[in-house]
Amino acid sequence: MELVFTTKSGKGTVKSMPIWIYFVIAGIIVSGIMAIKAARQEREVEDQWIEQEGQKYISRMNEEKRKKHLSKQDTA
């Protein structure tokens, strides 16, 4: 399947690319979109993991602070 376009002067013709080229271009575009979506999802999962690890760290620090505070009260 080929499309034919005429120039403004009407003297020459420009033939379009074969149909499989359009499929290749469409595949590249779809692959790019899918890669962007996958990267976004991976970033969200990573952000959630970082948040969870940060909460664990904060709770450990608070626990250590509490223990330190209790031990100071016991010795005083």
Rank of each mutant, 00 (worst) to 15 (best):
H69F: 05
I50C: 05
S9Y: 07
S59K: 10
T6H: 10
E63M: 06
E2S: 08
S9F: 12
I29Q: 08
P18N: 14
R60T: 12
Y57C: 02
T6K: 10
Q52S: 03
V24M: 09
F5W: 14
V14H: 03
G10Q: 00
I29V: 15
D74G: 00
G54L: 02
E2Y: 10
V4A: 06
E63A: 08
I50R: 08
R60C: 11
T6A: 02
A38F: 09
S71Q: 07
K65R: 12
M61G: 11
G27Y: 05
G54H: 00
R40Y: 03
V14L: 13
K56R: 13
L70A: 14
T13Y: 13
K11F: 01
E63F: 10
V14C: 05
E51M: 00
I28E: 09
I25C: 06
S31F: 14
I33L: 10
G27E: 02
K67R: 09
E64C: 00
R40D: 00
E42G: 13
E2V: 09
A26L: 13
I19K: 08
S59I: 13
T7C: 15
M34N: 04
K11G: 02
K11H: 12
R66G: 10
M34P: 00
F5T: 07
A39V: 01
R60M: 13
I21D: 00
T13K: 14
K72C: 00
G10M: 04
A39D: 05
G27N: 02
E44Y: 01
F5Y: 15
T6C: 06
A76K: 00
E2P: 13
K67V: 04
N62P: 04
K15M: 08
A39N: 07
I36W: 12
V24T: 13
K11M: 03
L3R: 11
S31Q: 08
V45W: 03
E64T: 02
E51K: 04
M17A: 11
H69I: 04
I58S: 04
S16Y: 06
I21F: 07
Q48C: 01
L70V: 04
T6N: 11
G12V: 13
E42S: 13
K11D: 06
V4I: 11
M61R: 15
K65V: 11
T6L: 11
V30K: 05
F5E: 11
S71P: 00
G32E: 12
